[in-house]
């Protein structure tokens, strides 16, 4: 009985409805399992390290001092096209001077053989503007939001780039946000990933961070704040939307 109550309460919380629509109550699925999503940051296929110089294919030398972004609205899809939208899935992924967080363990995943994963970089319009409505890990106190234009910073990349004219490493910062730049990434898998109460699914993606700079002229666009579709911010957002690829998949017996 207590278990049931706990579930009812957590369902209400997860549906974000405390106090209304109590008729959507359900019970915990004892068959459900976990799914671990990991995103490895790489530069030219090698693990990304902060403050280490890399050179892009186009010949730009850069290094990162931080890379942070919201991963949101994760949806797992099976071969028949049935999907499970992970409730309250808003996660802050980051590689900064204080550490690396690039993985999340999703619990309560209905049993199945999953063949596709969809997620977004950024925060959807319904949750992007009221800084006090916090779902998942969304938090207006972690330097990943703006108050002058209330909303979340979808992706923050900072570091240095080689400025050929000035013959020195100059600072760049890209703080991308605004509804236009909310990008959804579809990953389809070659096989499938099993999830059930005895199997935890696992997906490791690579984020090829060199791609952030594709078609960018850093000598001009080294300080980007905000973003519209047809601006350097828009270009960079297209870049991050396409920088993910599958590194490995698996399913581990608990």
């Amino acid at each position: 009985m207590t278990k049931r109550i706990v579930w009812i309460v957590s369902t209400l919380l997860l549906v974000g409805l405390v106090g209304c629509n109590a008729d959507t109550v359900e019970e915990v699925d004892p068959e459900s399992g976990t799914f671990t999503l990991t995103i490895e940051h790489v530069f030219n296929d090698t693990p990304l390290e902060l403050s280490v110089d890399y050179t892009t294919e186009a010949g730009l030398t850069v290094h990162f001092t931080q890379l942070r972004y919201w991963v949101s609205n994760v949806v797992l899809t099976d071969a028949e096209g049935l999907s499970f939208a992970v409730p309250e899935s808003y996660y802050l992924f980051e590689q900064t001077g204080t550490g690396l967080r690039n993985s999340v363990i999703i619990t309560g995943v209905p049993p199945g053989d999953y063949t596709g994963v969809t997620f977004s970089i950024g925060v959807d319009v319904d949750h992007n503007h009221s800084l006090d409505t916090l779902v998942g890990e969304l938090d207006a106190g972690v330097d990943m939001s703006w108050s002058w234009s209330s909303g979340f910073i979808f992706l923050k990349a900072e570091g240095n780039y080689w400025n050929d004219v000035e013959q020195t490493m100059n600072v760049f910062k890209a703080h991308l946000g605004f509804d236009d730049l909310y990008k959804t990434v579809d990953i389809s898998l070659e096989g499938s990933i099993r999830v059930d109460k005895t199997h935890g699914g696992r997906l490791v993606l690579s984020a090829e961070t060199s791609m952030l700079f594709d078609d960018m002229d850093m000598t001009v666009d080294h300080s980007i704040v905000g973003g519209s579709e047809d601006s350097p911010a828009g270009t960079m957002a297209e870049n991050y939307a396409s920088c993910f690829s599958v590194q490995s998949t698996g399913s581990r017996k608990n």
Binding site: T11, L14, V15, D29, S32, A79, E80, A85, P110, P111
Partner: peptide, 14 residues
Amino acid sequence: MTLTPTGWLRIVGL
């Protein structure tokens, strides 16, 4: 795979 009733309920709930 089919989604368990639970999974569907969750989506409907959303």
